[in-house]
């Protein structure tokens, strides 16, 4: 079962860079060069995810998403934007996009975000306990145990860990953490996220040699459940 992706992007270089990346990652990719074609193809509903440029000839990305949502097409959409202003980011989400990514971006980051969008429905499941390897998180009693040993975390550390545990085997970028945990929609100039992660690692790994939160070079972090 190959996952189908629609890429609406007028810049040929960006389009082929993104399309090639996803084809190699096992996606079935279709492309459109402008907003009208994008809207036409997107309305078919044959896709699992849409990637849209914010600025498109004919009909811009915001308008395409707005029209799709108005037509009842709920396919998850990610907006690519060269406009990094905080306002513009928020505007894209308001128009109905599910996520955005500021140009220039790394393919790893885009891939991680698309995977996140594809698995989104699972997050809505009511769970009271999350488990990754020997780490368990009791959501109702807000307790974390590793191999039976109880780990005490601050509320924020708990929140970060929950963010990872709800997205096993997926790359989580620093920006995704800032947005998801702190609701910060800009990129700070210091390595604050790394510091939070290393503190969290010290807490959950203890003296263990194997870290549960792996660093993914150039992309961010990941917790894999070994499956």
């Amino acid at each position: 079962m190959s996952r189908r992706l629609l890429i609406v992007e007028d810049d040929a270089d960006t389009q082929s860079f993104v399309a090639n990346g996803f084809t190699q990652a096992g996606f079935t990719v279709q492309t459109a060069d402008d907003g009208r074609d994008g809207l036409f193809l997107g309305t078919s509903g044959d896709f699992d995810c849409l990637i849209l440029d914010r600025m498109l000839p004919g009909l811009d990305g915001l308008a395409v998403v707005r029209s799709l949502r108005a037509a009842g097409v709920e396919t998850p959409a990610l907006m690519l934007t060269a406009l990094s202003a905080v306002d513009e980011r928020v505007k894209g989400l308001r128009a109905g996009a599910d996520d955005y990514l500021v140009k220039p971006f790394s393919f790893e980051e885009l891939h991680a975000r698309v995977e996140a969008l594809l698995r989104r429905p699972q997050e809505r499941e009511e769970t009271t306990e999350l488990t990754i390897k020997d780490l368990t998180m009791d959501l109702s009693r807000r307790k974390v145990r590793r191999s039976g040993r109880e780990i005490s975390l601050t509320p924020r550390e708990f929140q970060i860990l929950e963010f990872f545990m709800r997205r096993p085997n997926r790359v989580i970028s620093r920006t995704m953490l800032l947005e998801g945990v702190w609701d910060y929609h800009f990129d700070p100039q210091t390595n604050i996220v790394d510091v939070h992660i290393s503190k969290l690692r010290r807490q959950i790994d203890g003296d263990d040699d194997t870290t549960l939160i792996e660093t993914v070079r150039g992309a961010g972090y990941m917790m894999s459940d070994g499956s």
């Binding site: 924020r156 702190w182 910060y184 700070p188 210091t190 390595n191 604050i192 510091v195 939070h196 503190k199």
Partner: peptide, 8 residues
Amino acid sequence: AHDLYHPV
């Protein structure tokens, strides 16, 4: 902000 920056 304090929460975000105090570890750094």
